[in-house]
């Protein structure tokens, strides 16, 4: 089974880089023959190109919800994003739309997609580090991904 661990975000935009940090931590401890660990700063239709060759994908990204507290981690599935099928950007389609499009067109996508979303505090300040509460969450998410890879 081919598995992808994908850290998403912008590494120089404070907490937005949390997914990248987790991917970087995981890179050295996973066998590249079994798991591909990669980082990207893409969205929308670009997802299809990234996910296509894999059976399972674990995505780590930053999230901001209305009542969320920085450092909280949510384990989400693609169906959790279905409420956002309207265009959220005037510039590209969103995650749920891209996945649904891929499915309808018969593009081979991972059978299982898990998203670890880390509630973040600051995604507007240029900084190569996450804020303290989010930084403390990085090893926690690394553990969660490892457990996910080992079958939960």
């Amino acid at each position: 089974m081919k598995t992808l661990v994908l850290g998403l975000g912008n590494p120089i935009l404070s907490d937005d880089g949390v997914g990248i940090r987790v991917a970087q931590e995981l890179k050295d401890s996973l066998d590249p023959a079994e798991v591909t660990v990669t980082e990207a700063g893409v969205a929308g239709l670009d997802f299809l190109d990234l996910l296509t060759p894999y059976d399972k994908a674990i995505i780590i990204d930053a999230i901001q919800t209305r009542e969320g507290k920085p450092g909280q981690v949510y384990r989400l599935k693609p169906e959790d994003f279905m409420a956002t099928q309207h265009a959220c950007s005037p510039h590209d389609v969103n995650f749920a739309t891209a996945l649904e499009l891929g499915r309808r067109l018969g593009i081979l996508l991972p059978q299982e997609i898990v998203v670890f979303a880390v509630e973040v505090e600051n995604v507007t300040t240029f900084n190569e580090r996450c804020t303290p509460k989010v930084a403390q969450t990085v090893p926690v998410v690394v553990d969660m991904v490892m457990r996910e890879l080992n079958g939960g």
Binding site: N10, L13, D16, A43, D61, A62, I63, Q64, T65, R66, F81, A83, T84, C88, S89, P90, H91, D92, N94, A117, V120, V123
Partner: peptide, 8 residues
Amino acid sequence: CATHTLPG
């Protein structure tokens, strides 16, 4: 386009 908010 890079903010990550729900409902998005």
